[in-house]
């Protein structure tokens, strides 16, 4: 059984459709990432799942129970048993860490001893026991993140929703907190929907990724599928570094690129013009390479270099381990089995 099913969801603000007929599901215990650029409708989708907004049409099923249908909420937000981590964390500044976590347990009517047992357990889980009596303002950004997660999971929700929780913290801390999120989610096995515009977050955390653009689902799949076999030009461009070159199909399995003809699979493409897509690491600088170019830019990245190579008036990105100088003429090849045509 799916822990969450979103079916044909539509949401309009005034007359603008911000979520357009999207569907996806999450299996129990999985972490699904909703990945997309700002304004693509991913936070709106999350808020609809939480019951904070109501859709104009579509269905939300939580653990096999219909939570909302059409434009009607069948289960009010407070009865959906959902934990949520907000983008700004929304820790209540007038309450201590302990009181922040206790609030949800009190609302559920748990006895004091049971509440304290659960608070201790969850603080141990997020390794924040010693901060129980601190106010949130006294904690660092990363610690606040963990408290927000503790508050969201202490009630053992059916679903944990996270709205870009790492967007406001610096890169180093981000990595640590990401690891913690992964660990906590793995240990608790709470079904999680994680909204992010950061592909790194999505790829490192998620079992399954839903890429969204302009209110629509562009592609759903595991991280490898999304990265290696993007189904649309948007996904190809949005996820990872890429080269997208406009080409003309000049024959069966043959395209004309700015730097010469290139053999690749053209099956399924009827139009004359198309876009050739390949990742920087799918091109190689090598002595006997197919095409000529000049290096115009070099950047060091951990484990090698990325180059911008100017070729026939176009620039392409290439990744290579060896070091070449800017201005140097080189030859390069593209692995034809790994390119895609859109």
């Amino acid at each position: 059984m799916n822990a969450l099913e979103v079916k044909h969801l539509i949401k309009c603000f005034d007359s603008r459709e911000v979520v357009s007929d999207i569907s996806f599901n999450v299996e129990k215990g999985q972490l699904l990432a909703l990945l997309g650029p700002s304004g693509c409708g991913k936070t709106t989708t999350l808020r609809i799942i939480a019951g904070l907004d109501i859709q104009n049409d579509g269905e939300i099923w939580i653990e096999g129970v219909l939570a909302s249908h059409g434009s009607k909420s069948l289960i009010p937000q407070r009865l959906r048993h959902i934990g949520m981590v907000f983008q700004d964390l929304a820790l209540w500044p007038h309450m201590t860490v302990c009181e922040n976590i206790e609030f949800g347990l009190k609302a559920k009517g748990l006895a004091k001893t049971e509440r304290h047992k659960k608070i201790d357990a969850v603080l141990t889980k997020v390794k924040m026991q010693k901060y129980a009596n601190e106010y949130p303002s006294r904690l660092s950004g990363g610690q606040q993140q963990l408290i927000a997660i503790a508050r969201a999971i202490v009630t053992e929700p059916k679903l944990l929703l996270m709205d870009e929780p790492l967007s406001n913290i610096d890169v180093k801390l981000r990595e640590d907190v990401r690891q913690e999120i992964r660990r906590i989610q793995h240990e608790t096995q709470i079904t999680t929907v994680y909204v992010t515009h950061d592909q790194e977050d999505a790829f490192l955390l998620a079992n399954k990724v839903v890429v969204m653009n302009a209110g629509k689902v562009e592609q759903t799949g595991n991280t490898e599928e999304i990265y290696s076999f993007p189904k649309s030009l948007f996904v190809a461009n949005f996820v990872g570094e890429s080269n997208v070159i406009d080409v003309k199909i000049v024959g069966k399995d043959k395209v004309s690129t700015p730097w010469g003809e290139f053999a690749c699979n053209t099956k399924g493409h009827e139009k004359e013009s198309a876009f050739l897509f390949f990742r920087p690491h799918q091109a190689r600088i090598e002595k006997g390479g197919q095409f000529d170019g000049v290096i115009v830019n070099r950047n060091f990245v951990i484990g090698g270099y990325t180059y911008r190579i100017s070729t026939s008036g176009r620039e392409i990105k290439v990744q290579d381990l060896a070091k070449y100088e800017v201005g140097q003429s080189v030859k390069f090849s593209i692995k034809k089995m790994e390119v895609l045509l859109f």
């Binding site: 937000q77 959906r80 048993h81 209540w92 559920k108 508050r151």
Partner: peptide
């Protein structure tokens, strides 16, 4: 979100 964090939690 301060208010929503309360209602979502139940």
């Amino acid at each position: 979100s301060m208010e929503e964090a309360g209602t979502v939690i139940g």
